[in-house]
Design a protein around this nucleic acid. Sequence first.
DNA 1: CTGAAAGCGCTTACAG
DNA 2: CTGAAAGCGCTTACAG
Lengths: 334, 334
Amino acid sequence: MGKTATIRDVAQRASVSTATVSRVLNDDAHVVEATRQRVMDAIADLRYSRNDVARSLKTRSSRIVGIVSPELTNDFFMGIANGIEAALKKLKYSVIICSSNESRDEEKRLLKVLVEKAVDGVIVIPASDKGSHLKPFQDAGMPIVLADRLVEDFEADAALSDNFGGAREVVAAFIRRGARRIAFIGGASRLSNARERFEGYRAALAEGGIEEEPGIERFGDFHMESGRALMKDLLGRENPPRAFFIANLYMHIGATSFLLSLPEAERRGIRIAGFDSMAYSPLLGFCTLAVEQRIAELGGEAARLIMDRIGKRDKPFPEIVRLPTRLVVTENER
Amino acid sequence: MGKTATIRDVAQRASVSTATVSRVLNDDAHVVEATRQRVMDAIADLRYSRNDVARSLKTRSSRIVGIVSPELTNDFFMGIANGIEAALKKLKYSVIICSSNESRDEEKRLLKVLVEKAVDGVIVIPASDKGSHLKPFQDAGMPIVLADRLVEDFEADAALSDNFGGAREVVAAFIRRGARRIAFIGGASRLSNARERFEGYRAALAEGGIEEEPGIERFGDFHMESGRALMKDLLGRENPPRAFFIANLYMHIGATSFLLSLPEAERRGIRIAGFDSMAYSPLLGFCTLAVEQRIAELGGEAARLIMDRIGKRDKPFPEIVRLPTRLVVTENER
DNA sequence: CTGAAAGCGCTTACAG
DNA sequence: CTGAAAGCGCTTACAG
């Protein structure tokens, strides 16, 4: 930037002290209207814009919250980020969104950068099931909130979906609609949300009086490729299942794209119950039921949790919020 | 954060001045090794972390670049953001990603916030075809770079795809593969990228000796719903086309989801040439050809452009970069 | 090679 | 209701 006007320039032009300018800038009530107006005019004349860097240095608050996401190109994570941003905007907070690139090391590095930038807190969507590298930052006083899932060796406030309940509900509905033999395609069970969804599936099965069949319960990595591979694998068995609960959207995409590569006859009658609903969900042609997460609210809750800690609100630690999910019946009933 | 160690604490512990600590922090060559080591030890002992806010205030550089995107939940935009972040990381720059929510007013507000945060520059993916609201910030000295598209009433460096060339290439390939009567579904032609793609389509038609048929050239708004509506509309004509060039991914999704709602017989033989390729592109079952944009590089170029201006590199203004696209033949040849 | 000191642009207790 | 002044944690010419 060029030479911008400072608070001193404004003070001079309005013939007041910098303290007074600062007061009107911060909506201090004790400034008499005439003075305030004079200052406002000077601000307008000079096109003065506050320097938040200086403000932050003095107040020790940057009014910035960091968000660390495993990836940027993921509508689910960005939906959460959106929810966070919307909630914080109202409090005049801004947000720095960073991608850990699904790497724990990068996650750690980003925390360090964010601390240097003096963010007031950070919301992390964990890249792995590990959290010990977050501990030192928390110990140093940085408020940290988890979103979407929990991690090992690290306790913190967290905003999560009711993965267990959602999975149980959708699988139960699937059973009610006649599905008996339901295969499971999910993420690695060391991840908290993947495990919870698997347990929800099992609970629904048990409640429906359906015996588990370990041979058709498969665990991938939440990515497209593993969804495709597992679907291929399951359909390659001697007696392949026709109903599937796929516990994550990307695996669902992979599985569907494999199905699309099959001759019409081979894929007929296949039905899928899935997780999440995004812009492109209408393309998931075999999906008949889905669990919808309240993505934006997940972000909103994460925002609330971090603000509570930043504001040193007195409350038990950690606070874990579980957001209910919603069952959705999709258009495809083909 | 709690009471963190400052440069003074480090200086004291290492028995040097704060100036020396600052020097080792900034890799100043003139510090003798023994001193450097002592300082490094003190830093480690105290778990000192630099306060970038103070640094920024003094150096007048925050080492932060703002990114303003029309939305967060969009893999194309976030792919650009990713490219920017990757490129800037190497230069020890960070990035603040904000969503304008497709609103020009919000875009303006965000610019103001970013100026207050003293970012060194901002890369904007315009929310509309208007840019006059960006002018005052540029005039005040803030480096601004556009990505993805140009706007009216505002000149700036820009990183763009060769929309014209890409559209022309894919439509030409479509024609070579036998398509004659190709309908056009695109975005509003006041948007620079939408217009360029339309012109590319027209050029390919002309070069292929195919007469334009205005009745099957339709303009929506780049969103899913309009893709769906326009596809429905076109198929509702007396003599509906069977080949489509859809100039944007979301419209492509909408169009495809409409097709999926049709009985098998009605949609048979429909072929689509599209734009972009994302994780869920395999689900676009009617797509046979696509133009792939170099999304990450688009971000990389935007990063380079903004750094050039921040570094006051002497070069003509504005610099407009056009990145070539790549033609992709998809798996579906059904 | 290292230090003393000024200053970046704000905010805020303390006076008055 | 308003001002003078200190100070937030750094960096950097200027000396030596």
